[in-house]
Simulated scan of single mutants.
Amino acid sequence: MSLIINSTTPEGIVLAADSRQSYRNMKGMARVGSDTASKLFQINNRIGVGAAGLAFLPEGAVVKNVSHFIEEYKRDPEVEGLEVEETAQGLYDLFNQRYKWKTQLNELESKIAHDLHSKGLRILNVQKMDNQVKFTYQNSQGVVEDITAALDPIELLVAGYNADGSHQVFSCRIPGPIQKLRDSYQLDKQYGSSWIGQGDVVTRIVLGFDGRIANVDFMKEMFQSRGEAEVQRQLQGLEYAIQWGAMSLQDAVDFSTLMIQTTSAMQRFSDGINADPGDMPGVGGPIDVAVITPDQGFVWIKKKRLRYGDNEVDLE
């Protein structure tokens, strides 16, 4: 599943990513396919992107890594002059077209409906939400139950500087929205850290709670009685007070890599949470790190190299 972290500071932008790539085999079991996958990419001299989520897409009769399509995208001569938002939109459009997720979501809906009907269950309602389809049905005892199934999304974190020196960070979720996370022209969005992929450990550490807290019955009651806005406001009080605007670039590198290392270590000792056991240890392998600054542009701090024995080679 991966973990990509961006930390944006006054000195520059950090992008860090693990190298583990997982997949589901023919039996539907999650497996680690590689600990040497590339998830960080230099798009042009000012912009980088990290990719998480679904790792493979078909191209004709051949299944190819998501990295193949990003490398293909960056070879377009016009990419060198793109701004950050244009890059995010271009990659979003590319994978929206390549994924064909609407077709897959329809197939998933048909499969679940067939399974429920074959068991003699009565379907009461079907609702589609982005990459999910939710069925409400009546079981053999007449009790109303829900079942939700989802497609694996493709997630992108696009960060960098525009030609005028301003910086921006966007997240893209396919299927789903494009969101602006950082913008040097917005005081409340200038600096900070964002992450995609298996971010539950980082969320617990930085924000002070797990995002799945919304599924707890007590919290559902609180949302209804106090309102979601008020509950979210109070939960913000648990977030660590990190002075992103005073953070050095080295501090940002240290923070980003620490969060990936901690996630990998926690996944080693745990198997999901009690309310949802059986999680995939999807974060691991070497950590790639790149920084982007207004003066130097995109610079690799650490990047995997091909090696055999004592020999190493960098293909870039």
Rank of each mutant, 00 (worst) to 15 (best):
I4A: 05
I5A: 05
I5P: 06
N6L: 14
S7E: 04
T9W: 04
P10G: 12
P10I: 10
L15Y: 08
R20F: 05
Y23C: 02
N25D: 14
M26W: 13
A30H: 07
V32R: 04
S34I: 11
D35C: 08
A37S: 10
F41V: 00
Q42V: 07
N44E: 03
A51C: 10
V62P: 11
V63A: 04
K64P: 01
V66N: 03
S67P: 11
K74H: 04
E78Q: 13
L82M: 14
T87E: 07
A88V: 07
Q89F: 08
Q89E: 09
Q97K: 03
K100E: 08
K100T: 02
K100R: 06
K102P: 00
Q104R: 03
L105A: 00
E107L: 10
L108C: 03
K111G: 00
A113E: 14
H114R: 07
D115P: 01
S118K: 09
G120W: 00
L121F: 03
R122Y: 12
L124E: 07
L124M: 07
M129P: 00
F135E: 00
T136A: 04
T136I: 13
Q138G: 08
Q141D: 11
G142D: 08
G142T: 07
V144H: 00
D146V: 12
A159K: 07
G160P: 08
N162C: 09
H167T: 14
Q168E: 14
Q168L: 13
G176I: 06
I178D: 00
Q179L: 14
Q179E: 13
K180E: 05
Q186N: 11
D188Y: 07
Q190V: 07
G192V: 12
S194W: 12
W195Q: 08
Q198D: 10
G199S: 02
G199P: 11
D200G: 09
V206D: 08
L207K: 11
D210H: 06
I213L: 13
A214D: 14
A214T: 12
N215W: 06
N215L: 10
V216K: 15
K220C: 04
E221T: 12
Q224Y: 12
S225A: 15
E228V: 15
A229V: 12
R233G: 13
E239T: 06
W244S: 14
G245Y: 12
M247K: 09
Q250A: 13
A252C: 05
L258Y: 04
M259Y: 06
I260D: 02
T262Q: 15
S264D: 11
S264C: 09
A265Y: 12
M266P: 00
R268W: 03
S270T: 15
D271W: 04
D276V: 01
P277H: 05
G278V: 01
G278Q: 02
G278C: 06
D279M: 11
G282F: 03
G285C: 05
G285Y: 01
V289N: 04
V291N: 05
T293F: 15
D295G: 09
D295I: 06
G297A: 02
W300N: 01
I301N: 10
K302W: 11
G309V: 05
